[in-house]
């Protein structure tokens, strides 16, 4: 039955890109920038998320025990903490474990702290987990009444700060992104329109001899998709360099912050960019064709 050569459509699409070189280039550049911003923003949020998780800051309270408590006192305190309503898991961190963790966090020069092993300045502590934030103040009140607890670190507030920071970033970037995508689609619409216009006469003849809407539009849809694909591949390369650079410079400064390794996100980044790029391209070209595929 119907035998259309796919090479015809792809050939037409490429010649369209070529014919409107400047506009095609502009579309690719704009869409690429848009994708880089989208990628950077997504990666930033993803990194904030894993740090939030890794630190386990969300629903935890750390209670530090007075340094002069005996073993008996410590087990009494543990019992009393466990009896507070709504407290879930309670983990006892001995002063020796606390030192291990400290040494590990400090990293390179951590071994220097080994000398404190026998005369440990760090206190024992209990990490309380609770499920429902509504009981937070009750738990804090009850904790304060237990004898032998020296201080309480409320890690929730830090988590909140990070969370609201994240929300703020997401809000700003969302708006920024919407604007950028609208601009991208707009530029692609005009590029494809120009391409359609330069082939106005051809399209008219095709319609008279009974070409279907699909046959006429496919080259232009492919043209839009090619713009999207090219932009996404370039964005992928740029994002790789960018992330690698940031990761390296961060690694020198702080090693407390966790950074998702590039190798973990490459595939997602690649296909994510390709999908968003191609879909944007197709949306742009479809909109610019609507006039010709109707009536």
């Amino acid at each position: 039955m119907k035998r259309y050569r796919p090479t015809y459509f792809i050939g037409q699409a490429f010649s369209g890109l070529w014919r409107n070189g400047v506009m095609s280039f502009a579309s690719i550049a704009v869409l690429m920038s848009c994708l880089v911003v989208l990628g950077s923003f997504t990666l930033l949020v993803a990194n904030i998320n894993i740090n939030l998780e890794a630190l386990g800051l969300m629903n935890q309270i750390v209670a530090f025990v007075d340094d002069d408590m005996t073993e008996d006192d410590i087990s009494r305190i543990e019992r009393e903490i466990k009896s507070i309503p709504y407290v879930g898991n309670v983990t006892h961190i001995t002063e020796s474990e606390a030192l291990d963790e400290w040494i590990e966090q400090v990293g390179e020069y951590g071994d220097l702290y080994e000398q404190f092993r026998d005369d440990n300045p760090l206190p024992d502590s209990f990490v309380l987990e609770y499920v429902d934030g509504a009981h937070y103040s009750d738990i804090m009140y009850n904790l304060g009444r237990i004898e032998g607890i020296e201080s309480i670190r409320d890690e929730r507030s830090l988590a909140n700060t990070m969370q609201s920071l994240k929300n703020g970033i997401m809000l700003i970037f969302s708006w920024f992104l919407i604007v950028l995508f609208v601009v991208s689609v707009f530029v692609i619409i005009n590029t494809v329109k120009l391409s359609v216009y330069s082939r106005k006469n051809e399209i008219e003849i095709m319609r008279y001899v009974g070409a279907t809407g699909t046959f006429i539009s496919l080259p232009f849809i492919i043209e839009g998709a090619l713009i999207g694909l090219t932009a996404s591949m370039l964005a992928y390369i740029v994002e790789n360099f960018l992330y690698d650079y940031i990761q390296k410079s961060m690694a020198d400064v702080v090693n407390v912050i966790k950074i998702i390794p590039l190798s973990d996100i490459r595939v997602v980044l690649f296909f994510g960019f390709a999908a968003v790029g191609i879909v944007t391209g197709i949306i742009g070209s479809t909109i610019s064709l609507s006039k010709y595929t109707r009536s």
Binding site: M1, K2, R3, Y4, Y8, V209, G210, F215
Partner: peptide
């Protein structure tokens, strides 16, 4: 020939 290609006529 183009008019025929457009409607999917076998080559």
């Amino acid at each position: 020939a183009f008019a025929m290609q457009v409607v999917g006529t076998p080559s």
